[in-house]
């Protein structure tokens, strides 16, 4: 294997695959980006869901905290 062999293989590869002809972006992607940002902001983490699920249990075992919580809300 020598440099000339490598060049030949590279040329075959370029001919078989070829460089991409069009690299221009055809549309503004900002609206999609904004959608992704909104979606991620709205998404609650698994920890949030665990805390929400624990809330009724907490109220059940310690009902005295309910008025305190309501007072602070």
């Amino acid at each position: 294997m020598n440099d000339r062999d490598d060049e030949k293989l590279q040329e075959l590869l370029r001919n078989a695959v070829g460089p991409i002809a069009d690299t221009e972006l055809k549309q503004d992607l900002w609206p999609r980006m904004l959608g992704k940002l909104d979606e991620q902001t709205m998404r609650a983490s698994w920890l949030d869901w665990v805390l929400i699920a624990l809330l009724p249990l907490w109220f059940f075992f310690f009902p005295e905290v309910i008025p305190v919580l309501l007072y602070h809300l």
């Binding site: 075959l12 001919n15 078989a16 695959v17 991409i20 002809a21 069009d22």
Partner: peptide, 20 residues
């Protein structure tokens, strides 16, 4: 998909596929 330019006709399609 790739929008590749015209391929060298000297390369047979099966060889091209093997290279790909």
């Amino acid at each position: 998909q790739a929008q590749v330019p015209p391929i060298d006709p000297a390369i047979q399609s099966d060889i091209r596929e093997q290279i790909e």
